[in-house]
């Protein structure tokens, strides 16, 4: 099948944040069945913070993620299952176990300036015969030239694909364009883009990325992702179809999965709330939202003040422990 743009569905990984890591095997099977029938080519399944993310820091999974991965692999007839690893959280035994369960793709995520920490995992992914993706997170925090330099480290380390990742949903369309263009000019592997909809720009930014040469886009069905979610899969599939760009996804079927399978399991509809809006505005990692809301209740301070302060302190992905500290400090002021 001809696919001009390859979509990876991330709701069963990025959406783990919005679900407070409470996915069940049944939910994963139902979602994968629907996504597979709608002809989505890749589905990512892991704890929101990647393999091994089930911790006090990020929230414990209700169901062991390997059970969810196994369920996804068993259920998918055509779709390939992907997993995410963040060096510093995941370790090589986690990756080996996922590979044994039959996943096809390994995405290795680092902060946008720290690509060299991905090399151990990328090497292992290649050894295990997996398709590998270098995933450069928080890419609003670096200039295009820096991003190119870091992408090259991952490509030299064996990454088959490089993703520009807007973890905070903070990039504006022109910034996506300049970053993707720089990558396309300087590296030879396919380039992807991962958005968050915190500023309501996920679809627009994804279109900007495609126009600048991106071949892969991450979507989350019904916007089931951290913060305000990602590029809504059924929407981008429909928009691209209207533009004559083939994704291979059956748009009626994907709309049905969104409405009939995903909407009923959402703890609340995925809207742009004041909290998620501030993530994008202040440039904060999207999974911080629910942790900030919780700290806001506990310490009686505005979640927006917590997130603004976190943005000022230039927190990177994974620093959820900073939320408690900042909330306590704000309470004392």
């Amino acid at each position: 099948m001809k696919r001009d743009v390859i979509i990876t569905e991330v709701a069963l990984r990025d959406g783990s944040h919005a679900m407070r890591h409470q996915f069940t095997e049944e939910q994963v099977r139902a979602a994968v069945t629907g996504l597979d029938e709608a002809n989505v080519p890749y589905i990512e399944v892991t704890h929101g913070d990647g393999l091994g993310g089930s911790t006090i820091q990020y929230g414990h999974s209700l169901t062991d993620e390997f059970k969810l991965i196994e369920a996804a692999v068993e259920t998918a007839k055509n779709a390939k299952i992907a997993v995410l690893s963040l060096p510093g959280i995941a370790t090589k035994p986690n990756i080996k176990r996922a590979a044994d369960l039959g996943v096809s793709m390994l995405r290795v995520a680092t902060h946008v300036t720290e690509a060299d920490v991905s090399l151990q995992h990328l090497n292992l992914g290649k050894e295990l015969g997996l398709e590998t993706v270098g995933f450069l997170m928080m890419s609003h925090m670096a200039e295009p030239s820096k991003i190119v330099e870091q992408a090259k480290i991952m490509v030299n380390g064996g990454a088959d694909v490089i993703y520009l990742v807007d973890s905070a949903g903070a990039l504006l369309p022109y910034q996506v364009t300049e970053r993707i263009k720089a990558l396309k000019q300087e590296i030879d592997v396919p380039v992807g883009f991962h958005a968050h909809n915190n500023l309501s720009l996920a679809v627009a930014n994804s279109l900007a990325a495609i126009e600048a040469g991106a071949e892969r886009i991450d979507g989350s069905i019904r916007c089931l992702g951290a913060g305000a979610g990602n590029t809504q899969t059924e929407v981008i599939a429909s928009v691209l179809d209207k533009m004559g760009i083939q994704t291979g996804i059956d748009i009626y079927k994907i709309m049905d999965v969104a409405e009939d399978v995903i909407a009923p399991i959402l703890p609340q509809p995925q809207e742009i709330t004041r909290g998620s809006l501030v993530l994008g505005y202040a440039g904060v990692y999207s999974s911080f939202l629910l942790h900030a809301n919780k700290a806001s209740e506990k310490f009686g301070v505005d979640a927006r003040d917590i997130l603004m302060e976190i943005g000022k302190r230039k927190a990177v992905g994974g620093q959820e422990d900073m939320i408690l500290e900042v909330a306590a400090e704000l309470q004392q002021q």
Binding site: T55, I56, Q57, G88, I89, H111, T113, E114, V117, R313, K314, A315, V316, G318, Q319, D321
Partner: peptide, 23 residues
């Protein structure tokens, strides 16, 4: 035991920071 390690590139550089969660 569980361990998470994070590198933060902020300028000026951040002090080494360790959080210990115990049950």
């Amino acid at each position: 035991g569980r361990t998470v390690m994070i590198l933060n590139p902020a300028e000026p550089p951040i002090m080494m920071n360790d959080t210990i969660h115990l049950i």
